[in-house]
Amino acid sequence: MSEAYGVVLFFTTSSAIRGEKVAKRQGLRVKLIPTPRQLSSDCGMALRFAWRDADDVRRCLEEAGVENDGLHRI
């Protein structure tokens, strides 16, 4: 069975990069990918993570004050 993933959407590239940095510093396995079309028509990037890490990802973004447009399961 393939692993379930989620993505964090951001309003700006700067926030996406910042989110990646913050999550990696916490040892979370994340990757910046093109935003999935079903979630947004945006041409920007989103941060992919394993869905089982959702709580940790949410917490570390919140603690660092990284503005985002929510976590979405894909």
């Binding site: 700067s14 996406a16 990069i17 910046l32 990918i33 093109p34 920007g44 990037m45 989103a46």
Partner: peptide, 21 residues
């Protein structure tokens, strides 16, 4: 081009800009 795509070179460019920021 920073932030114009999600491919690895765009992400690398985005990181370079963000680090400068």
């Amino acid at each position: 081009n920073p932030g114009r795509s999600g491919h690895r070179l765009s992400v690398a460019a985005g990181r370079a800009v963000y680090e400068a920021r």
